[in-house]
Structure formats: C-alpha cells, structure tokens
Amino acid sequence: MGILSGSGNKGRKLILIVYLLVSIVILLFSAFFITQAIQAYTLYQYERGFSLLFTGVIGLALSLYMLSVYMRRPGLIRHKEVRRMVAVVECVSCSYRDRRDYVSGDYVMKESGGCPVCGGKTLVTEIYPEVVGRG
C-alpha cells in the first residue's frame, strides 16, 4: 500500500499508471510462460517445461500481489453514509407520536408546541441521525 501513497497529485497519478502497466505486463508474460510450459510438456520436454512453468508461476504470484496492492491503495474513494438528523415529538397526554426533521434549537425534553390530536403539550423525546443513503 505504501509504495502507492506518495504525495503530490500529478506525480502520484503517473506512478500509479506505470505501476499498473508493469503489473499487467508481468501478468501477460506469466500467462504466456505458462501456456509455453504446457506446450513443452505435451512435447515431453520436461526440463524446458519445468523452467517455463517455474518462471510463469512466480511471475503470476508477483503480478497478482502487485494488483492486490493496487486495489487496496489508500485514497480510493470510500462511500460514506449520508445521514440526516431527525427528531421525534410525542404528546404528553395522548399517544400522538411524530417524526420530523431536526430543527436547529431542538433538544431532548424541549416542549414543542401543541398536540394536533388533543391540544396538549408535546415534547421532543428523541434526536438521532438516520442513514438516508450512500453518497
């Protein structure tokens, strides 16, 4: 992860592209070596086949590792939860209960106007963040 976390935006982008290209090239070569190794084995060229297979497998492991580092690089945009504050208003005397947007100045146990059902007192009983989606 660390190799890919240089500062400076322009230089970093270039490093990232070069790094990605190098890993893909190694991956392609490894695949090529492995196919060559299979070909060699079918022709009973065991020594040549082993040497090609050895190179191919190590190259494959290296390139996959490099790609995994690339995927986990810091600075990838992670989606954060979008939250909004809501307030619950309850009537003291009846079972009226309403959820509305939080308004600046609200606090829990604050009296909040008359009850639309019975006209009694209402209280803000809960203020909490609600997840409304991902941005």
Binding site: L28, F32, T35, L52, G59
Partner: peptide, 26 residues
C-alpha cells in the same frame, strides 16, 4: 496469448533457448 506469441518468437524468445524465461528468472 496467440496474438503476442509470434512477436515474441520474432524477438528471439519462446524458441530453443527461452532467453526471455532465463531473463525473467534472473
């Protein structure tokens, strides 16, 4: 891989010596 193998053969790999394989191993 079929598409790049002729190119590689042309530059002298994949043939008898497997130069590229040796270089990579190094």
């Amino acid at each position: 891989m079929q598409s790049i193998s002729p190119i590689l053969v042309e530059v002298g790999v994949g043939g008898e010596g497997d130069n590229l394989s040796t270089i990579f191993q190094m």
